[in-house]
Design a protein around this nucleic acid. Structure first.
Length: 577
RNA sequence: CGGGGCGUGGCUCAGCCUGGUAGAGCGCCAGCUUUGGGAGCUGGAUGUCGUGAGUUCAAAUCUCACCGCCCCGACCA
């Protein structure tokens, strides 16, 4: 392909709309253009890379035995009401009406459709197991689209759904997908970290996320410095290593005036005590009733864990509810003397000498021995894990990182198959419920994640497997006939050898062409110029290492093809299976 | 939805405070020179200054409303 016939609108300057490197580079290298917030057009270069990611995904899914199908993006709202997820996901679904005034939605995911399909078509154990997947556009009315393709309103997802006769078989399906994901991301040149995760709106028993570690990542996670434990912060449990005992055990609670001091920060400064000596008392409301939730003053409550324990609808209480529940305005709640149920993080068990609100305006209590001075308390693990906490699996210590979720595998169990009647008859003629799993890869997000992980100051550094072109060839001076002739000869030869080659035929200054090639990031650059030609050579530059090699003209074609093949081979998974 | 920032040519931005002829660099078009890391010279095209209302003799500039974009938070796969 000739550069002059392609459409590669590169930008010299960083568009102000883009914050993170990958988003900036996708715009600068001419891969995408924005239509409006969270909606992007793919230009030729972006689409070429996207198609290559899709091809890898498709090959590995097929290899793992999954079957490609394609389901409608436009769906009747009823199927969501049937599964009970309309309420859960109504805020992320685009909703509309058709000409018969039927309520329709654009699918944010496809458990409902695929489970209905399986329920209708699969009746016997002889038809199991089956795993259906598709690569398709998903629609989610994001509260806040962000970072280009990272979080968009419309994006391409590979979603797969496994149906198994029993739990053991389902485990096998899960492992097969897990392994396929490892291979997919490896082939895309991505380094990923697998973490334990919360199942969120998908539901089900347990799940793992494939994370690309990156500063720009939207998810916090922790990993152990000793063992392989790693988890999303939403899911992670850290062992609290600190001991919360202060001062003399014999001291009893004492009221202390703290006029106008509401936050832990304010009161700890006022009383000259560390935040960790405080019992943070938050009032939540669940099922219409207030509940006091306690945590050490320097730590945060994990609301996902909390909701699992006290009720899925739990939210922080409004000020008037707090006044009614504690008798004091916001900022002065404490566990001592409260008449509402209390749950506390397990780190607070046995704590002594603590400080908390006195349930009276402008007063706090100190010298609290929590289980001595407060009423009945349920102790539960409720904290968001933090770097420095102990690993829950071994003696190691957790450290924090940020990640981009590119894949997520779920053990769903029977959540959908039960609701939507996905049952079959086993060998004994007994009716059984299918065991499901679901497996997603954000294809467009994966593409951008590769750039986020693989770029430098000059531009994108594509892994050869998903580079829009594998090699760019140029005549440094497009008016120098011998250079042009040799360049074109190399382009033809490479094309014939099955290499994706871009021919920069523009009559631009060399600097312009060099900058552009670096920006769009093709793994190899071949330049033909008068200088190297005088030595009987062409120049090959490795985009990743920056290494420049003079290659004799006669051997150039063979050497370049070999290098491309070597780069391709390096990204194939080491072992089969 | 709360907080903050920003909307001026294709891109990056100045001008706004203190109202009075709409600017620069890059890009684009034509010509000449140039050709190993974003060239030089000459000439040229491109703007409802986000939209609407208001104040004013006069609004890119002041006021109000709305819209859009970006960031933080809440929320979320």
């Amino acid at each position: 392909m000739r550069w002059s016939r392609q459409f590669i609108p590169t930008l010299r300057e960083v568009p102000q709309e883009a914050e993170i490197p990958s988003h900036q580079l996708m715009l600068r290298a001419g891969l995408i253009r924005k239509l409006s917030g969270g909606l992007y057009s793919f230009l030729p270069l972006g689409l070429r890379s996207l198609r290559k990611v899709e091809r890898i995904v498709r090959e590995e899914m097929d290899r793992a035995g999954a079957l490609e199908i394609l389901m409608p993006a436009l769906q009747p709202q009823e199927i969501w009401e049937e599964s009970g997820r309309f309420e859960v996901l109504r805020h992320v679904m685009f909703k509309m009406r058709d000409r018969q005034d039927r309520s329709m939605v654009l699918g944010p995911t496809h458990e409902e459709v695929v489970t209905g399909l399986a329920a209708g078509e699969i009746n016997s154990y002889r038809q199991l197991p089956r795993n259906f997947y598709q690569i398709q556009t998903k629609f989610r009315d994001e509260i806040r689209p962000r970072f280009g393709l990272m979080r968009a309103k419309e994006f391409i997802m590979k979603d797969a759904y496994s149906f198994d006769p029993g739990w053991d078989e389902a485990e096998t399906s899960y492992q097969a997908m897990y392994q396929a994901y490892v291979r997919i991301f490896h082939r895309c040149g991505l380094r990923t970290k697998v973490v334990e995760a919360d199942t969120g709106a998908m539901g089900g028993k347990s799940s793992h996320e494939f994370m690309v570690l990156a500063e720009a990542g939207e998810d916090g996670l922790v990993e152990c410095d000793r063992c392989s434990y790693a988890a999303n912060l939403e899911q992670a449990e850290g062992r609290f290593l600190d001991t919360l005992t202060f001062g003399d055990d014999a001291l009893t609670p004492e009221k202390v005036a703290t006029p106008g001091q509401r936050t832990i920060e304010e009161v700890s400064a006022f009383l000259k005590a560390e935040p960790r000596q405080f019992i943070k008392t938050l009032i939540y409301v669940t099922d219409g009733k207030p509940v006091a939730v306690l945590a050490p003053g320097h730590r945060e409550i994990n609301e996902i864990a909390l909701r699992k324990e006290i009720g899925a609808d739990a939210v922080l209480a409004d000020p008037d509810v707090i006044v009614a529940a504690t008798g004091a305005p916001v900022g002065f709640a404490g566990p001592v003397g409260l008449s509402i149920p209390i749950v506390a993080d397990i780190s607070l068990r046995g704590s002594r000498g603590m400080i908390s609100g006195a349930n009276e305006a402008d007063f706090h209590l100190r010298n609290i021995g929590l289980d001595r001075d407060a009423g009945e308390i349920r102790y539960l693990p409720l904290l968001i894990a933090k770097g420095g906490d102990g690993c829950p699996r071994c003696d190691g210590m957790l450290k924090e990182a940020r990640g981009i979720e590119v894949g997520h595998v779920f053990k769903l169990g029977t959540k959908y198959s039960e609701k939507l009647g996905a049952t079959y008859l086993d060998a004994q003629g007994e009716k059984q419920t299918m065991i499901m799993g679901c497996y997603g890869i954000g294809v467009t997000r994966t593409l951008q994640s590769v750039i986020e992980q693989s770029h430098d100051a000059q531009g994108i550094v594509w892994p050869v497997s998903i580079a829009p072109y594998e090699v760019t060839v140029m005549a440094i001076n497009a008016t120098h006939a011998p250079s042009v002739a040799l360049a074109e000869q190399l382009v033809d030869g490479l094309t014939a050898a099955g290499v994706d080659v871009l021919y920069d035929d523009r009559d631009e200054r060399p600097g312009v062409k060099f900058k552009d090639v670096d920006l769009i990031g093709t793994p190899l650059r071949v330049s033909v110029g008068e200088r190297s030609l005088a030595k009987g050579e062409v120049e090959v530059k490795d985009r990743k290492t920056g290494a420049l090699t003079g290659v004799p003209v006669e051997q150039a074609l063979g050497i370049i093809v070999e290098q491309v093949q070597a780069m391709r081979a390096a990204l194939m998974p080491p072992v089969a299976g």
